[in-house]
């Protein structure tokens, strides 16, 4: 431990004023200083800290180019580029980290080819701009283009994430046949079919609670006509959710009475892109039964010659719906032979 600290100290002691160690110490000093203040002063000082750190690292990687090179590939520019990205995300707050990640490869490429543009003026011993040597240009070009290509791959990742947040139910499916993506976290629970079914159940519960039992029975008999209406209502409700998913219109709602007195199956059918041409279906089995509730009515009446309000309770038979948990996604269309929509 003692030895390690001694060694570290020796490493970090600037050999001369102009060295990477000086810049690193300035950076560490800035971090301490930034911890003491608030507001824009803090931002300013921490920005300085980042810049010292970037310059120090830049210096360090070029001083130790041999050890940083793994079989012809010099990792230095990537490290410096990554730090620049960190600086952009943490201090320049309007840069989201996706942008910083996409900028990382091109930044690294610029850092890697930059030395070729700089020459030392022989008279004044100062750096000056120069055209890169002819023999270097081909390599520089290939390096820049390949780094641009890597940035495109990063960008493509974010395009995919955009699609998946617009159409999250895609993630419930299998991507085995894709030539583009692999799914490292396939999970059938991502399907929003359950949301669709829950909304439909809520709508039906509200509807049946206000209908008399004969009306409910008629509704169930005329499901062919009633289901599209329910579908529209459910769609409208889904579109009013806090996040309005673009995939809502890719969900279809179907229903079928599967048994007397009344077993009702509700189906959420995925009509978007799928690994099977038919899409998949999530089923929810429900039971509709009569339910007697006391309906309270208030009406004005005359009592002892004075107008008052009397409350009357009378029993009314309405509909009640009880549903089980939704099924797992099944890659088949619901059976349409029964009373369906």
């Amino acid at each position: 431990m003692q030895e390690f600290i001694q060694d570290l100290r020796k490493q970090l002691t600037p050999p001369q004023f102009a060295s990477w160690q000086t810049l690193l110490l300035m950076s560490i000093f800035s971090v301490f200083l930034a911890g003491l203040v608030q507001g824009w002063v803090r931002d300013l000082i921490s920005s300085c800290g980042w810049i010292w750190l970037i310059l120090s690292t830049w210096w360090f990687v070029y001083e130790n180019k041999k050890t940083m090179t793994v079989s012809d590939w010099f990792s230095g520019p990537w490290i410096v580029g990554g730090l620049m990205g960190g600086f952009l995300v943490s201090t320049v707050r309007f840069v989201p980290w996706s942008t910083a990640l996409i900028l990382w490869p091109p930044l690294s490429a610029v850092i890697a080819v930059l030395p070729n543009f700089i020459a030392t003026d022989n008279d004044t011993k100062t750096p000056k701009w120069t055209k890169p040597a002819l023999s270097k240009r081909q390599g520089m070009l290939l390096l820049t283009l390949s780094h641009l290509l890597i940035a495109c791959w990063f960008q493509f990742y974010f395009v995919l994430q955009g699609w998946l947040s617009d159409y999250p139910s895609l993630r419930a499916d299998r991507f085995d046949r894709s030539a583009f993506v692999v799914n490292l976290g396939q999970d059938e629970n991502f399907s929003r079919g359950r949301d669709v079914l829950r909304t439909a159940e809520d709508e039906l519960r509200k509807k049946f609670a206000t209908m008399s039992w004969p009306e409910v029975e008629r509704w169930l008999l005329e499901m062919n006509r009633e289901m599209p209406k329910l579908n529209t209502e459910v769609q409208a409700k889904l579109d009013r959710q806090k996040i309005r998913f673009a995939e809502n219109s890719w969900w279809g709602l179907k229903g079928k009475v599967t048994g007397g007195e009344y077993d009702l199956d509700l189906y959420a059918v995925w009509q978007g892109p799928s690994s099977k041409t038919t899409g998949y279906t999530i089923t929810k089995s429900c039971q509709v039964s009569p339910n007697t509730v006391m309906i309270r009515t208030t009406k004005p009446a005359l009592k002892n010659g004075k107008p008052t309000i009397v409350t009357e309770s009378k029993p009314k038979v309405v509909g009640k719906i009880k549903c089980e948990m939704p099924s797992q996604p099944r890659f088949e269309q619901p059976d349409e032979n029964g009373v369906g929509a």
């Binding site: 791959w153 955009g162 947040s165 991507f175 583009f180 993506v181 692999v182 799914n183 976290g185």
Partner: peptide, 17 residues
């Protein structure tokens, strides 16, 4: 935006190379 999933374009990268 804002969700980051395990869906990666790794096959696209492999095919492209």
């Amino acid at each position: 935006m804002g969700t980051f999933t395990g869906v990666m374009p790794l096959r696209a990268v492999a095919f492209q190379i």
